[in-house]
Nucleic acid binder design. Structure first.
Lengths: 138, 138
DNA sequence: TCTTGAACCTCTAGTCGCTAGAGCATGTAG
DNA sequence: CTACATGCTCTAGCGACTAGAGGTTCAAGA
């Protein structure tokens, strides 16, 4: 399987310039090239790039992804190191889920209220109160 | 209540330069100033800034926040407009929750595996496989 | 009242993670 | 063997901050 960069892009949903950017910052290894210097990729790059995309969408920054990728590329390394990295994210992720769930409830309430007035919608209040730990529930 | 910018920062968790930046891009109104040109804020700014912070943390971009803020500042406007904005985000939010939940399960599995080898951890595989069938474009 | 220093001011420039465009080269399909 | 979609490099721009230089203000303590 020999994929041009455009085909890799199509299969992963990552834009062509972004793929080149990832190569530039060392997230993707330098691929083989044709005589005319065009990049050619294989199955491992598809997997790696899919991983990168999903990790990015889920809020991991490039440095964290780099660490995870480095760790897993050496399969003899102890899981404890991955533990340390993932642990940090686990709390964040749980926190995000909690707040997104609260937000979803509010958004659904707003979507349902449709013909009424904005003044009846509580989204602003609820969001503004969050950090205060004072929000009354409805 | 007359708050200096540093006090507003402490109460909202938004850094001082970020507050000035929000003013610059029009997310926060220009506040009153002292004789010596220092900004002074009141309760409404605390609320507004808290709203902005939480909305940002939950992934709303500045333009969306601006729209929500504009809409709600005119309480006679129909909820339908808010509906349109929130509706768009509702799908994204649900999608994020779903993928974060999947990630959390994987992270928890990894954290639990501790002493074993990275090769036993499935996070890379799971994340790499996620978008294989269908990807949503935002 | 005066002094001191933390906190304020403006302005410019840098960061991260892309994204777009110019201008030219390659490679595949007809 | 030619057309032209796709590829290449390079530079510059964007969103949303963040950091630093260099100077000013304000409030608390002597």
């Amino acid at each position: 399987m020999e994929l041009a960069i455009g085909e890799l892009s199509r299969r992963t949903g990552v834009k062509v310039p972004t793929i080149r950017y990832y190569e530039q910052i060392g997230l993707l290894p330098e691929p083989t090239r044709t005589e005319g210097q065009q990049r050619r990729y294989g199955a491992p790059e598809v997997r790696r790039l899919n991983f990168i995309r999903h990790a990015r969408e889920l809020g991991f920054d490039v440095e964290a992804i780099r660490q995870l990728l480095d760790l897993t590329s050496d399969p003899n390394r102890s899981c404890g190191e991955v533990h340390a990295i993932t642990r940090t994210h686990l709390d964040e992720v749980n926190d995000k889920i909690a707040r997104l769930t609260a937000l979803r409830d509010e958004l659904e309430a707003m979507v349902a209220c449709d013909n009424r007035r904005v003044s009846d919608c509580r989204i602003i209040e609820v969001l503004a109160d969050h950090g205060q730990c004072q929000h009354r529930h409805h």
